[in-house]
């Protein structure tokens, strides 16, 4: 049973990490444009070699 004394805190810690991760993603605006994020993954932004132009991103 003494194993539980380790397992419970570890389980809680993992859950807590998940919570912190969610809070971080919320704060960094990852839910501001859900539709856009879903579509952007389909964008083919590779330019042919030599023509590559620096993209001005965030």
């Amino acid at each position: 049973m003494s194993m539980l004394l380790w397992m419970i805190p570890i389980a809680l810690m993992m859950g807590f990490l998940g919570l912190v991760g969610f809070m971080w993603s919320l704060k960094s605006g990852q839910y501001d444009d859900l539709d856009g994020a879903a579509q952007r993954i389909l964008m083919d932004d590779d330019a042919p070699l030599g023509e590559a132009k620096p993209q001005a991103d965030e």
């Binding site: 444009d33 539709d35 856009g36 001005a56 991103d57």
Partner: peptide, 16 residues
């Protein structure tokens, strides 16, 4: 829009 030399950034929010 970025083809225009002057444009620094253009970002579209699709949801809004």
């Amino acid at each position: 829009l970025r083809e225009d030399e002057r444009v620094e950034n253009a970002r579209l929010n699709l949801s809004t």
